[in-house]
Design a protein around this nucleic acid. Structure first.
Length: 850
RNA sequence: GCCGAUGUGGCGAAAUGGUAGACGCAACGGACUUAAAAUCCGUUGGGCCAUAAAAGGCCCGUGCCGGUUCGAGUCCGGCCAUCGGCACCA
């Protein structure tokens, strides 16, 4: 056996050939309006992939899954006469390049450049039809100049609650504008990761550990930049309704935003001229509040604690502060807390109730204080039982259950103001009652926190901000981009001071002003890249107005028509970019309220062993190896043939071989090798009319492939093309035109082989001109899909009993009569009563017998 | 605990309420070949009956239990399992 197995068809020659042609001729460049070659008569279609972080390990088989899907749709839409925007770029700020810099001293830009070159070569090798003239890189100063510029727009705006929009800060009439800016500095407890030497956003902390690296995260108060995403909570929620996204992702965002409706209630503190405000979704249980709990960090704790209780309170607070996020939020653990010695007055019944502190109350949610209603809240009940606090039932369940521990809706009891009312009414009534007394009001709370936007990293966008006499100030637009200084040592300081602080020269902006040394998080660049793709070379604006209006147009709120990527960004990138987009929309910089209209999530690809691919399991599939062995077209088709795009599914090398065999059959259908070993067009190919059966399978294939591409069902589109090829495999004569149409259908999936075969046919037949990329998509004729006869299924009581062939024009009566008349059916129904007979035209007859 | 998704052959999977398992993989048999690879043809959910051969026939079967319907993988109700998300959010 020869060392090199013979290729079933010469993909190793034709794939590089066509990739070079596409490159040279810039076949997939989409001109902008006003640009040469732009065709204003065509509708636009913007189809986007989530651009990758170019890691050092190169592409894995998960990347090309979504990329192949979008490439099929992009190539299809071009043939359907659309101007298609299909770009690719690099989300290249990030930790691995920085960590490599720490180890090697090599500037991260060099590592990034190498990785980008490798990723790009890999993507090109798969034959994706990206418009490479639009390639962008978030670490390019010409790109992040505009990331910094957008930050300035956010910094220079505030959210006007009356108009519910962001407006320029100059329209703010209140006192201190720094208190309302959408970008602000706050001294808040943040997620500090000592191992990474940086703070992290809530979205980046998973189970008390950093999402990147899995290192422990602790709470620590620090002075940080925040973005006021909470101002947009309601609009981010409302906007979801109009988007064509998977319901699961919408739900994840809704839960993350976490809207809950209820009331804020003020409890006066006994013997003190102050109040504690709590938030509750169940104001109707106010009479059942037998104690209060403040979060250990609550600002009133110092004020109310009695001298006697002070040592215990201080001790508890210190212990709570030292706990990691993981320890603190562990649901299973037992409740803890200490009494402050102080009492509050329940505004409903003027009862004195004790005030405790406990870490099951979170400082960051609501008001950081709760009323304890042990009878109707599981956590409060657990706490009350542990510390012997009274339990008073105030809601009666409808079906004689025990009221204690009942958390659902029922009827108010032991609550003079609302007794006898169902919970929903009781909530409204008691809220009004509290409002009248000035002791409370209806309120809405969100779980969403403001976005912690600064990082103590080197490899990120520097803030366009300087500090002067303790105040921050924006730099001017003409000073952008702010480029980070080169360093000898990229190591984090460990103190929370960013590495940029080491550049003593750089941080000195002027005699009076020092530069901000934090950098932006990795999400900043990806928040708006889809906009830059519309107009990537503009150096006067972040995106040209006309280009933005053209590519983001459409009769729906979102600008990008289709966006494909994994679910891992559900509450990170997909929420952040919606937020930025809405700010830019409010300020009049973009034309649409939402960035992405239709979202499709591809499923994770598992290893052959059905396990998640990982280095340690040794089940990683390298796309380069697959392409080397079977070619890019087989790789693309297999990625799509595996199963539904959205589904999680295991890789199978055997499966790749099967798809490669299919492509080889396509090749051999049209090409034969002569004695001398050179290839020529099969003499079975004739410019003749197809017969009825061939006509039928052709039109069925056009219909199925067209509909399946539209619905992202690529696996069944490929199945149908296999059926088509099988139908012609043993034909004596192969009519030319069905083959032409078939190649166009195959082209989005396997563009290299389709291009080559198309071109080869052109050398012999003169019926078509130009490349396959210039052909119109074939159409089908519904009438040719059915023959003269159809098979009718005959059922008795719903069970298949016989089949007959009938003309497609047979009437229901004829079908019924013919069905009952077959010998087999006669035998089965003889001596029985025939009841109803159900007839489905062209399909089946069901005879009901008793 | 709450929310969501998914359960169909040996495997990946198909099936507008109307022939369950298309298409592919694997397996088995055959053709071609000195031989193998490649290729082509055929068989392939389980069980049972029948037969000289060619055929043929019956029952069961889409996680489990029930319901609606002439007819349910598909619709409804209730369970179970796996995966994913959230998780002391008052």
């Amino acid at each position: 056996m020869s060392s090199e197995r013979r290729k079933p068809y010469p993909f190793d020659r034709i794939e590089p050939k066509w990739q070079a042609i596409w490159d040279e001729r810039q076949v997939f460049h989409a001109p902008n309006p006003e640009e040469e070659g732009f065709d204003a008569a065509k509708p636009k279609f913007y189809i986007l992939d989530m651009f990758p972080y170019p890691s050092g390990t190169g592409l894995h088989v998960g990347h090309p899954e979504g990329y192949t899907a979008t490439d099929i749709v992009a190539r299809y839409k071009r043939l359907r006469g659309f101007n298609v925007l299909h770009p690719m770029g690099w989300d290249a700020f990030g930790l691995p390049a920085e960590q490599y810099a720490i180890r090697s001293g090599q500037h991260p830009a060099i590592t990034t450049g190498e990785n980008v070159a490798r990723f790009k070569a890999q993507l090109k090798r798969i034959g994706f039809s990206y418009d490479w003239q639009r390639e962008i890189n978030t670490t390019d100063p010409r790109y992040y100049k505009w990331t910094q510029w957008i930050f300035l727009q956010i910094y220079n705006s505030w959210f006007n609650p009356d108009s519910r929009r962001a407006e320029p800060i100059s329209t703010y009439r209140g006192g201190d504008p720094d208190g309302v800016r959408l970008a602000y500095v706050a001294d808040v407890p943040v997620n500090w990761c000592p191992e990474l030497g940086t703070v992290l956003a809530n979205e980046e902390v998973v189970d008390g550990k950093s999402e990147v690296g899995g290192f422990p995260v602790v709470r620590r108060p620090m002075r940080q930049w925040m973005l006021r995403i909470t101002a947009y909570a309601e609009r981010l929620l409302e906007g979801l309704d109009e988007l064509d996204w998977p319901e699961g992702i919408k739900l994840l965002q809704r839960n993350w935003i976490g809207r809950s409706e209820g009331a804020e209630i003020d409890f006066t503190i006994a013997n003190l001229d102050d109040k504690i405000r709590v938030f509750t979704t169940r104001p109707d249980t106010l009479y059942g509040a037998t104690y209060m709990v403040l979060a250990p960090e609550h600002s009133l704790v110092d004020l109310i604690v009695t001298e006697e209780q002070w040592p215990e309170v201080r001790d508890y607070r210190e212990r709570a502060a030292r706990k990691s996020e993981l320890e603190r939020t562990d649901v299973g653990k037992e409740k803890t807390g200490v009494f402050t010695g102080a009492y509050a007055i329940n505004p409903a019944n003027d009862e004195r109730i004790p005030i405790w502190i406990a870490d099951y109350v979170l400082a960051g949610y609501g008001t950081g204080a709760i009323m304890g209603v042990p009878a109707h809240d599981e956590r409060d009940l657990e706490f009350a039982r542990k510390f012997d606090l009274p339990v008073r039932e105030v809601v009666q369940p409808s079906a004689g259950e025990n009221p204690i521990g009942f958390v659902g809706e029922g009827t108010a009891i032991n609550s003079p103001v609302i007794d006898g009312l169902p919970s929903a009414q009781a909530i409204r009534r008691i809220t009004e009652w509290l409002e009248q007394r000035g002791a409370g009001k209806g309120a809405i709370n969100y779980k969403l926190r403001d976005w912690l936007f600064s990082r103590q990293r080197y490899w990120g966008e520097p803030f366009p901000i300087v500090w002067e006499k303790g105040n921050h100030r924006a730099l001017e637009e003409k000073e952008l981009p702010i480029v980070p200084p080169p360093l000898d040592d990229y190591k984090p300081t460990g103190t929370g001071e960013p590495p940029l602080a080491k550049a003593k020269e750089w941080i000195r902006y002027s005699d009076a002003a020092m530069r901000e040394t934090n950098t932006m998080p990795q999400w900043a660049g990806s928040c708006w890249y889809y906009l830059r793709f519309c107009d990537p070379h503009d150096d006067r604006r972040f995106v040209g107005e006309e280009a933005e209006r053209y590519w983001m147009a459409g009769d729906h709120p979102g600008g990008v028509d289709v966006y494909v990527g994994g679910t891992e960004h559900a509450v990170l990138h997909l929420l952040y970019s919606r937020f930025w987009h809405k700010v830019l929309f409010d300020l009049g910089y973009v034309s649409k309220p939402e960035p992405f209209q239709r979202l499709v999530n591809q499923g994770v690809i598992l290893g052959e062993d059905n396990q998640k691919m990982s280095k340690s399991r040794g089940n990683i599939v390298n796309p380069d190896d697959v392409i080397e062995q079977h070619g890019a077209d087989a790789f693309r088709c297999y990625e799509m043939f595996m199963g539904p795009l959205e589904q999680m599914k295991p890789w199978s090398m055997r499966g790749v071989e099967g798809v490669a065999r299919f492509l080889a059959r396509v090749w051999r259908l049209l090409i034969t090798e002569n004695q001398a070993g050179s290839r020529e067009i099969s003499d079975k190919i004739k410019a003749v009319d197809p017969d009825k059966a061939q006509q039928k399978v052709l039109h069925a294939t056009i219909k199925k492939v067209t509909e399946d591409i539209e619905s992202f069902s690529f696996n069944t589109a490929i199945s149908q093309m296999m059926i088509f090829v099988n139908a012609f495999t043993n034909a004596e004569m192969i009519p030319l035109l069905p083959m032409r149409a078939f190649l166009i259908l195959l082209n989005p999936f396997a563009p290299h082989i389709a291009s080559e075969l198309w071109e080869t046919l052109n050398t012999k037949f003169t019926d078509a001109r130009g490349d396959i990329t210039e052909q119109p998509w074939p159409s089908y004729d519904e009438r040719l899909l059915v023959g003269q006869e159809v098979e009718i299924v005959i059922q008795i009581n719903g069970k298949l009993r016989d089949r007959i062939k009938m003309s497609i024009v047979a009437t229901e009566e004829e079908m019924k009569a013919a069905a009952i008349a077959t010998p087999k059916i006669q035998k089965l129904v003889s001596g029985k009563n025939i009841g109803k007979v159900v007839v489905v035209p062209k399909k089946l007859v069901n005879i009901v017998v008793r």
